[in-house]
Design a protein around this nucleic acid. Structure first.
Lengths: 213, 213, 213, 213
DNA sequence: GATTAAACGAGACGGTACGTCCAGTCTTTAT
DNA sequence: ATAAAGACTGGACGTACCGTCTCGTTTAATC
């Protein structure tokens, strides 16, 4: 019943090791060359694989790099530092640390740029990076609720929008700080930023355009 | 005294019209083709200029696109809508409108991506886009002070950091919302975001790591 | 036994048809455009082949044209006209006819000019044109010996030098007549030239600097 | 008075020194770079002259190089070595010496190659090189007649054809020997060649197609 | 154990753009 | 009017990758 994976078709099966080797080679090439000088021929060579093998599994450079970068963000965890504010600071610092790595900097922005003209790519980024990491926001809220720092989920619709806003604000600010302004997102900055964010959310919970009297 | 422009040197002077034509052609090509399919040969043809002329004035695709995109942000103005919050909402909406245009989306993210591996390019972006547009934050603060909404500049050092933080938060959130999350930065969202931002700044003015008692 | 053709190496084999198409296209382009306006891009297009394919097989314009022109001279044959003098006249007329064709005129002189600065190219010309066509002189001598017109090879060393001298005199005179003086090497001229050459060789066989008493 | 050079027209007169400097620079560039890498911009720079000046006086690379090379052959003189055969050997050796110089090798063959597709250029070569140097053949014949080695001019028409034949045979053989066969035209070779040539002319004076009985 | 069919490595292929170079022209100021 | 300087259009250069293709060669599941 489990539908896909058609039992295993005849012929030689795809090498499982190749996928991992290719993604690792991609990140290595991103570190050394950056997005624009990275070539699929070079990645194939680093991975000890023929170019054909690579094209059999990914449609092109964009898709490959999304997958290679997405894996990086799976390292993120929500540390338990005792309070909502401290937990968030912890995650933001981890996020900043990943963005400080060249394979993430170079790759992430490049695929986002490509995605401005490619809906399928944008959806892939959203699914495998953005939506996937919203788990951290949800986990943070759940833990804060367990601690009694937040009330237990008032309105699902507003709550979802708040998660989105938090994610855009956190990811956006850190990315802009590190990549555009090119200043370090160090502890001092993260602390200040987190205070403003949480204070703002506490004082003015997101409510769309329905104005309070 | 001013002595610059060395009297007019020998030889045929550079065509002033060519620069404008090239930048306009670059934006046109960004709209139609996006960053990655944009070629300098194509831009030259659109501008009615030889490829050589283009290379004589810009070092490459990156530098050209930075200049072409930077001009877009000069359109931004600080509207007078009566209050700090309303003024900011107005600017953010304008900013979102620019980011909705394909020549900005495609070009801006791509050069930011390239800048992760090219210090000179990053500096060029900072100088001609980021620092240049901080004028809007400064103007907003000045007008709010004139209205009495804000006190008259407490501490220059902290004030500068606050400007940076505001810029990173505003630009970052809008960019992330529109380009990564791929949701519209419409009036509702801008209103909610601005409330959170201003409430946060009011409740917890940025002070770096020196903790309040 | 002789084991050459290394078993057939891995990868897609080179298209055999491409070589012939490229050489034919080169001659066609020589006819229409001449050496200096011939471009490799144009040749590739005429041959229905990518420029890359062309560069993969020839180092550049010079090498390509040498090969394209060399094939022309393989058309030469030694006709049997009954006597040494008549046989030679026949070959010289054929040679003049080839030099009257634009693909030969344009190409041959140009590569000779280039070869003045390129030893490898000169060697290539020598091997694939000059030495290759000395077969005609050798065949002519052999036939004349069979007829009893010439004695059977007196001294190998002098004989080789005589072949060289004959080749330089024949090829040089015809080329100079047709290309530099720009007069036709017609039957009358060829007849007169051949008489002088053969009379001279008969009267004063080449002996280097060892003077007869 | 003497018609051309209109007394001196208005404006700055052309620099007479420039022409000589340009031709010398052309030969210098031919030595260093050869024909194909020689550029007019480079020649202009070497001559300390603007590119415009160069184009004002020559139509292009071909015409310039013909003039630059033609001057080289004016160095040839007919030495008085006591006999026709010795005189001719002397001239041929001088000719071979000039062809051994890179500026002549490279330039001469290249313009001949170009001339195969350019009638005006061919005429220029004929006038300023070929016809101009036939003076040597004429002078040689005159001196031989004065010495009594040759009878005093039997038939003007045949005589002219003989001069042409001699020129084609001498120039052709030396050029082919040095540039195509790439062997030195040294004293030994020149001696052997001259003997064959003169013996042939003596035994079978050129008579076109009217056969002897 | 033999068959079979897909995956694999190698590398040639048609294309496209690159960034450079040069030809030849044009536009400026200086002589 | 000619000269020097240098920007201009136009076009070929030779290189580098792209993504596809065609080979001969594994390699596992199946028969």
């Amino acid at each position: 019943m489990q539908s896909r994976t058609p039992a295993s078709r005849a012929g030689r099966p795809r090498s499982a090791a190749a996928d991992a080797a290719i993604l690792a080679a991609t990140r290595e090439a991103l570190v050394e060359l950056g997005w624009s000088r990275l070539t699929l021929g070079d990645v194939a060579m680093r991975a000890g694989v023929a170019k054909t093998t690579l094209y059999r599994r990914w449609a092109g450079k964009n898709e490959l790099v999304v997958d290679a970068v997405a894996e990086l963000f799976d390292e993120l965890t929500l540390p338990d530092r005792g309070s909502l504010a401290a937990d968030i600071e912890g995650v933001v610092l981890q996020f900043a640390a990943i963005l400080a790595r060249p394979e993430a900097r170079s790759g992430l922005m490049a695929v986002v740029a490509e995605a401005t003209r490619d809906d399928a790519l944008r959806e892939r980024i959203r699914a495998s990076i953005v939506e996937r990491q919203k788990r951290l926001v949800l986990a943070g809220r759940a833990r804060a609720q367990a601690r009694g720092e937040l009330p237990p989920e008032p309105d699902t619709r507003e709550a979802a929008r708040t998660v989105d806003l938090i994610f855009d604000m956190v990811a956006g600010a850190v990315v802009h700080r590190t990549l555009v302004s090119a200043e370090p997102a160090d502890e001092e900055w993260v602390h200040g930023f987190t205070r403003v964010l949480l204070s703002g959310l506490a004082a003015a919970p997101y409510r769309g355009d329905r104005e309070a009297p």
